[in-house]
Design a protein around this nucleic acid. Structure first.
Lengths: 213, 213
DNA sequence: ACCGATCGTGACGGCGCGTCAACTTTGCCG
DNA sequence: CGGCAAAGTTGACGCGCCGTCACGATCGGT
């Protein structure tokens, strides 16, 4: 009896209602501006100007551009996560585990605006701008070598850009793990990445050191 | 006879000398500041303050923080490139091609300050900050599923963090290629990434569409 | 020794950031 | 209803960074 009036929080007065609406207005404005200008180039004022609120109000809801972006990601993660999870649970072996995960993720990238923004942001810093002459030359060399290898039949006739992208992606992420953890040597990292490309998941080496649980 | 006095440009007077020295001073200062504060957090003024030059002078050499960073990368690329290239040329098959490339790259990450800065910068935006509750939860789920699979013998006893990092790296980079090029469908991307993880390079699918020249 | 060209200097206008004191709206209770 | 405290909104403000530019110093050639 005592909780008869326990309504959903979101509907208990004009106060809460306005707060929810303002918050959503900021998030929606941010999504558009990010999609338009890219993450790096947008300023907090850009987002504010895309709403009808005063500058001070923004800071009642978020502390920074980064925080709005995180709210965006959270919103989307709630939709993406169950989908990815479902694929993994449905999987009867690791083939389906991996297939399902990649397939549903790439679907999201194609169709969801926020996921698109996240990917673009991930790359807008590293690639769009780092492409300085010598670095470009390095990538060009690698690409040329890959194409030669394909022509000679040493590599299968895969898409060279996708192969390069994969190598770069693995190199950066594994390198980052190496920097974050102190129990991974350059040798461990190299062995891991090499095994993945030569034989796939089945060929991966055992975890180097025992780790406390 | 006319070109007897063609000395190396770098030694033809105090003017050039000062210019080269200023430029190098800025680059060196920037490397230290980047390593100290991280790329995102350093301002142009931070770099200037780490030199003995006036603020205006900086802009006689570089247009922005990004441009100094590129100069840093260029400097390093000149050292890294030949090493990586040598590994690929020495290779007699694609196994050595891939092994040599990864090995020498990870060596650089471990030992070279600028390469370290580049990796840190690559990740400081996406991971350090995106880790918002829902996104973390998603990664945690994936990690837990991977560990379960390993315990059940479905996956080999590899390092789960490195495996996750690889999947994330490939997913992001391939997704980016998909967004940049219009001839890669979500299906192509999924097939490529899946094949890589299941069977390594040898299992990669043929390039989907014919490409000019 | 002189002069033109080149480069260093730091003050300045512009702008985005985050804050805060004043003001408005809402919820509540007599 | 009316009045009041709490909660929320507003925009002007101080701060620091950015990139520029007019001025002065320095260098190289004659």
């Amino acid at each position: 009896m005592s909780d008869v009036f326990e309504l959903t929080k979101s509907q208990r007065g004009k106060r809460e209602e306005t707060k929810a609406s303002n918050r959503q207005a900021i998030i929606d404005a941010a999504r558009n501006v990010f999609a338009d200008l890219g993450y790096g180039a947008t300023t907090v004022r850009d987002i504010i100007r895309a709403t009808e609120l005063a500058s001070g109000t923004f800071y009642n809801y978020f502390k920074s551009k980064e925080e709005v972006f995180q709210a965006l990601q959270d919103e989307t993660a709630l939709r993406v996560r169950p989908r990815l999870r479902a694929e993994r649970i449905r999987a009867r072996g690791f083939e389906e585990f991996i297939t399902g995960t990649f397939r549903s993720y790439f679907d999201f990238v194609k169709n969801d605006q926020t996921t698109f923004i996240a990917v673009r942001r991930h790359r807008e810093i590293p690639r769009v701008r780092i492409d300085t002459p010598e670095v470009i030359a390095g990538f060009d060399e690698l690409r040329a070598d890959i194409e030669t290898a394909i022509e000679n039949g040493v590599l299968p006739p895969a898409d060279p850009d996708l192969l390069m992208a994969s190598m770069v992606g693995v190199a950066f992420e594994v390198a980052h793990q190496m920097l974050v953890r102190d129990d991974i040597s350059a040798d461990d990292a190299a062995k891991f990445a090499t095994a993945l490309f030569l034989g796939g998941v089945q060929a991966l080496p055992k975890k180097p050191k025992a780790k406390k649980r």
